[in-house]
Design a protein around this nucleic acid. Structure first.
Lengths: 211, 211
DNA sequence: GCGATAGTATTGACGCTGTCAAGATTGGCT
DNA sequence: AGCCAATCTTGACAGCGTCAATACTATCGC
């Protein structure tokens, strides 16, 4: 965005971002296992060894993508918070935001917790991951303050995150299952965002319940 | 188990299972991205092209592993059902069973929903997946019958499955997070199975709540 | 007993991959 | 101007998945 249209210059201009974009494209098309540094370099119009100068190796590039996933999450969650009317609505919208980021950035989100291809010990990774989690924990805390002071904040936040992450992973199978095992008439066209909200409501009913 | 100890016979005896075992080993050690057909063949003591005669290609082998994941799940869930005292306990134990299968068979479970490396349209995959889901849906139905007839069975079952699947994926990060951001004294050594049960209780509090 | 046959495993080849070392090109600083 | 550091290319190497061709073996019909 900031630099000129590369053209036939020896220096690319903004190769790191071009590579990240190409990588996201490849992974979105073929899945994480279809990713290859050489293919990414090809799409960015540079030689096969160029990426190594900006990202040490394939793990370096994928780790940057994972951090970007958290950055997207952070941004979307901030927006959701601004739009919320109360604490319950806020948590519901955070859930929706989470899965919608996964829809918008499938490549980033498909590798963000893949410890075998991402360096999860990277400071950036940990910092931005913690930041995203912070949104969730704060929202759960607000719900607890308002509806149930005995709620285990950490456990409830983990449950929310797990449910949303699981939903993202399982959703394709849920669709396919509907087509295979359900009557055509009872097939829902409900979006994943709507399911996320309903998940949120179900969990929050549990959060409010006192022992 | 059924055949002789291979020794120096030209024919292996039970190569398919040997290959599956070796594949599970490699994936458990190095993650899905570290998997390679040639390494698997090496560990089974056969030539690099031998696997192709039993599993068409790497997707074929990994799909078999994914189906085995569902089989392990089916077995563990059946056991859990037998041990349960009531409908709520049954659902709780199913959750524990799910994550404990993932602990016992990390390789199988790390690829079971990876559509890019597994053929999720395979009849075996769909049949055994549906069977595992059946345990969960039936247990949710029992809870609904006893505590809340208005409960959306499908949604609640999906939420349970999502939460458990998400827990498995996020648990390593949860551990690391504790070490990084928590006071050493408030670090829990709670097992993933215990967390699964507490997740279950939290969700069930929501299932019981009527609007 | 014996040969045909189908099943099982090997060998070798191909193009693809990640990574490293060495060299070429460029922009900017002194 | 001249030099340096950053950037990119080229070439090489071993490892990978997959295919075709070949070797070996168990078994069944005779």
């Amino acid at each position: 965005m900031t630099t000129a249209p590369t053209s036939n210059r020896y220096h690319h201009g903004d190769l790191p971002n071009a590579l990240k974009g190409a990588a996201a494209e490849v992974i979105a098309e073929r899945g994480p296992s279809g990713f290859s540094l050489r293919e990414v370099a090809r799409r960015a119009g540079v030689s096969h060894a160029a990426p190594a100068h900006h990202f040490r190796d394939s793990t370096g590039l994928l780790t940057e993508l994972a951090v970007d996933a958290f950055r997207y999450l952070d941004a979307a969650m901030s927006e959701a918070e601004a739009a919320a009317t109360d604490s319950v609505d806020r948590l519901r919208l955070l859930g929706r935001a989470y899965v919608e980021v996964a829809v918008e950035h499938p490549a980033h989100c498909s590798i963000v917790f893949r410890g075998d291809v991402v360096d999860t010990t990277s400071p950036d990774y940990q910092e931005w991951g913690e930041r995203a989690y912070g949104h969730l924990a704060a929202a759960v805390e607000a719900v607890a303050a308002e509806h149930n002071p005995d709620l285990d904040i950490g456990l409830a936040a983990s449950l929310c995150w797990s449910a949303m992450q699981g939903l993202i992973v399982l959703h394709p199978g849920m669709i396919k299952r509907q087509e295979l095992f359900c009557d055509p008439e009872e097939i829902t066209t409900e979006s994943i965002g709507d399911i996320a909200e309903r998940f949120g409501d179900m969990m929050m009913a549990g959060f409010k319940a006192r022992p």
